[in-house]
């Protein structure tokens, strides 16, 4: 199966990458866009989804500073 893990900075933690993008937008003519936050997307193949949460907690995300969501993609990608 193919899975997709979305990792984002926890709410309330300053996200300077998001801020930098937010500040750049008006200069490029994109008005009215705010609250930008930048996370990470990990896609992977796994034999089972069973251990994915553990894998996320131990490696893909740092649970102190990041939240993660696991999305199992069906049907399996080839």
């Amino acid at each position: 199966m193919r899975a997709r893990v979305l990792i984002r900075p926890k709410e309330g933690i300053l996200d300077p990458q998001g801020k930098a993008v937010e500040r750049a937008l008006p200069a490029l003519g994109f008005e009215g866009v705010g609250n930008v936050h930048i996370g990470r997307l990990v896609e992977l193949d796994a034999e089972s989804a069973e251990r994915l949460p553990e894998l996320c907690e131990k490696l893909l995300a740092n649970p102190l500073i990041e939240d993660f969501e696991i999305e199992v993609l069906e049907p399996p990608a080839r």
Binding site: P16, Q17, A20, N62
Partner: peptide
């Protein structure tokens, strides 16, 4: 910090 031997985490500098 990542090992859990110390508390907290280290993030990107505020200035980037």
């Amino acid at each position: 910090c990542e090992s859990g031997l110390l508390p907290g985490a280290l993030l990107l500098n505020e200035s980037l």
